[in-house]
Amino acid sequence: MLGELEYKILQVLYDLWEQQLKLGAIEELKIKTGRSKDDIERALSILEQNKYIIWTEKRCI
């Protein structure tokens, strides 16, 4: 089961992809979630480990 932050990030990524046909950078995720870069990177790692995303470039999505 995903934590609150992981779920929110996954939802933001989906919304960004649906609206812009691209995925947002960490800076955009910081703005939309109100969380720190470390929190977002930790959440992205969890999403990647659980196979919700493929995070090939660790500096952006």
Results as ranks from 00 to 15, higher is better:
Thr33Trp: 00
Trp17Ile: 07
Leu44Tyr: 04
Lys30Leu: 08
Ala43Ile: 07
Ile61Val: 12
Lys22Glu: 15
Gly34Tyr: 00
Leu2Tyr: 06
Asp15Ser: 02
Ser36Asp: 02
Ala25Gln: 09
Gly3Trp: 14
Leu44Pro: 01
Arg42Asp: 03
Leu21Gln: 15
Thr33Leu: 05
Leu5Tyr: 00
Gln19Leu: 05
Leu10Gly: 10
Ile46Pro: 04
Ile54Lys: 05
Thr56Asp: 07
Glu4Phe: 02
Val12Ala: 01
Glu41Pro: 03
Arg42Glu: 02
Glu48Met: 02
Ile26Glu: 00
Ile46Gly: 04
Leu44His: 06
Asn50Arg: 12
Asp38Thr: 15
Ile26Phe: 06
Leu10Trp: 01
Ile54Val: 13
Leu47Val: 06
Asn50Cys: 05
Ser36Thr: 09
Gln49Met: 14
Lys30Gly: 00
Glu18Val: 09
Leu13Ser: 06
Glu57Pro: 08
Glu6Tyr: 03
Glu48Trp: 10
Leu29Asn: 08
Ala43Ser: 05
Lys8Ser: 03
Ile61Pro: 00
Ile61Gln: 04
Leu23Val: 13
Gly3Leu: 07
Glu48Leu: 03
Ile53Tyr: 05
Val12Thr: 05
Ala43Asp: 01
Gln19Arg: 12
Leu2Ile: 04
Gly24Glu: 04
Leu47Ser: 04
Cys60Phe: 15
Arg59Val: 01
Trp55Gly: 07
Lys37Arg: 15
Tyr52Arg: 05
Leu10Val: 03
Ala43Arg: 00
Leu23His: 02
Lys37Asp: 01
Gln11Ala: 10
Leu44Ile: 04
Gln20Pro: 00
Gln20Thr: 14
Glu57Ile: 01
Glu4Thr: 07
Lys51Ile: 12
Cys60Leu: 11
Ile9Ser: 02
Glu6Lys: 01
Lys51Glu: 15
Tyr52Phe: 14
Ile40Pro: 09
Glu27Asn: 08
Glu4Ile: 06
Leu21Met: 11
Ile53Gln: 08
Leu29Ile: 14
Tyr7Ser: 11
Arg35Met: 12
Leu23Tyr: 01
Leu5Asp: 04
Ala25Asn: 09
Gly24Ile: 06
Ile9Met: 07
Lys32Ile: 00
Met1Thr: 00
Arg35Thr: 13
Ile53His: 00
Ile46Glu: 14
Ile54Gly: 08
Leu29Val: 04
Leu10Ile: 08
Leu44Arg: 03
Leu21Ile: 12
Leu2Ser: 05
Gln49Phe: 13
Gly34Glu: 02
Trp17Gly: 12
Leu5Val: 03
Lys51Cys: 07
Arg59Tyr: 02
Arg59Met: 00
Gly34Asp: 02
Tyr52Met: 06
Leu47Trp: 13
Lys58Thr: 08
Lys22Asp: 15
Trp17Thr: 13
Ile9Gly: 04
Met1Pro: 09
Trp17Arg: 10
Leu21Arg: 15
